[in-house]
Amino acid sequence: MLKTESINFTYDGLSKFNFPDIQLNNADSLLVLGDSGVGKTTFIQILAGLLKPKSGQIHLDSVNYNELSLKEMDQFRGRRIGMIFQNPHFVRNLNIFDNLLLSLYLSKNIQDEKRVTQLLNELGLGNKLDSMPDDLSQGEQQRASIALSVIKQPDLILADEPTSSLDDVNCQRIIKLLKEQAEKNKSKLIIITHDNRIKTQFNKSITL
């Protein structure tokens, strides 16, 4: 279960963000909506433990973020949280297959090559195993970045505007795949977006 309590955050004390409390069970998904500048990305980075909130509590399953040191938070994130960004990024000098293996290595998981192949097949990238990231189309890149974050079977998947640069067909495909993968791994899924095309596909949403 993911649970947040009265999180607020400030950059240099100038603009202050107060975030609503959320509660999410395993395999639940949540859409976070809002216009530019309301702190959507800040919220997701706080949930990822990349930014420390000024006050408030975050619990992911039994772990309280406030009780983790910086290093412990890094390791915790590596193992338990998968992130997907608006513009997918990869390790440029590794092919897609090796990028996934690296993700497993860094999150201290077993480098199970069979599972990597299987996942890439599921995401329709079965013939792109040896491709370098720069050689993929935008839709393929976004699918590969889903693979990169779900290969370690995280408890929480955080997606920051995953569809905003995609066409309609790819947009629908990405959302479908994200939901499938989250359900399969019993992961909690949070998608931040201002993309109206996907609003209808989630029954739980909050607006910042």
């Binding site: 990349l50 994130r77 993700s103 990169l148």
Partner: peptide, 18 residues
Amino acid sequence: NRRYELALIRVHGATKLQ
């Protein structure tokens, strides 16, 4: 050129030392 890549590696769980 690889700033984003390195940040990504950290997000995936790489330590500073790595």
